[in-house]
């Protein structure tokens, strides 16, 4: 086999495999969307799932609070540190408040918050639903005339859509506050300048943009994680694989959607 035919067969193999991955990915996203929409179409169908929604919101929201506060605090602190030494080179330390605030509200809050929620709650949603499949609990619900999509999937999707923006807001507040502590209390940036720049440079558009990202991320995380659990192979290996895939696909999805939404807001 000569050099050019080796190259051609390598390219064919590479693009063939890439194409299959892409098609599989698109198929998965399409299936997840259809399943999510089917679950959401049951939102206003009796019996109401209010109690289960509250329980899920509690598990997801309150359960993820500690990790969100810790991540938010250290993100704000490291941003203040890095920002201070960068801005000091240009003599613009007074812009530190605006830098920390904008970075967190527009970008780091929604993205890092979403990552933490995927790791803490998304994976547990997938594993929980997957185990219910393995142990035939979803079939048992079916046989008791209870729609698993309405009982299991719907409350988790709705809870994620609501919990993610709330947790991201907490991340933002903690991040900005910890940035203030490092910038003003430890590094000696003028308190008035820090706050004035923070208030002057952050507009409502930035805040709405962060929330819109968080809502979209929440919807996507809820759909992907419930879908992966619901469609996981009914084996222990299948559940493990689905949980890993749910985390990977959700995380990559967050970055892609983040870029798309950011391009609209800039």
């Amino acid at each position: 086999m000569n050099h050019s035919s080796v190259k051609q067969s390598f390219l064919a193999l590479f693009f063939g495999r890439l194409g299959r991955y892409a098609l599989h990915g698109v198929e998965q996203v399409g299936d997840a969307s259809m399943l999510g929409l089917r679950a959401l179409s049951l939102l206003f169908v009796r019996p109401w799932q209010g109690k289960h929604f509250i329980l899920q919101l509690y598990a997801l929201g309150v359960g993820s609070m500690v990790i969100i506060i810790i991540t938010g605090a250290f993100t704000g602190m490291v941003l203040a540190l890095q920002g201070y030494y960068t801005l000091a080179k240009f003599g613009s330390e007074s812009l530190l408040g605006a830098g920390v605030g904008l970075s967190i509200i527009r970008e780091l809050g929604p993205v890092l918050g979403a990552f933490m929620i995927i790791g803490r709650a998304g994976s547990s949603i997938t594993a929980e639903i997957g185990i219910m499949r393995v142990t035939e609990q979803t079939d048992a619900l079916e046989m008791m005339a209870i729609n698993p999509m309405q009982r299991i999937l719907l409350p988790r999707i709705v809870a994620t859509v609501i919990a993610v923006p709330l947790l991201v807001s907490i991340f933002d507040i903690v991040g900005i506050a910890s940035g203030y502590v490092v910038g003003v209390e430890l590094l000696g940036v003028n308190q008035g300048a820090y706050m004035a720049e923070l208030i002057a440079k952050i507009t409502m558009v930035d805040i709405y943009g962060g929330w819109i990202k968080a809502i979209v991320f929440g919807f996507m995380i809820g759909m992907i994680c419930t879908f992966m659990g619901y469609r996981s192979e009914p084996t222990t290996e299948g559940v493990a694989k689905s949980t890993t895939e749910a985390v990977v696909v959700s995380s990559v999805g967050v970055l892609i959607i983040d870029y798309i939404i950011t391009s609209f807001f800039l």
């Binding site: 142990t135 035939e136 609990q137 079939d139 048992a140 619900l141 079916e142 046989m143 008791m144 005339a145 209870i146 729609n147």
Partner: peptide
């Protein structure tokens, strides 16, 4: 229809091989 299926299932029961209790 799903609605009719669930109506019918209200008069059914099933014992699963591994019990399938809600854990």
């Amino acid at each position: 229809s799903v609605r009719r299926l669930y109506e019918l299932r209200e008069s059914m029961g099933m014992l699963f091989q591994y019990s399938a209790l809600l854990n």
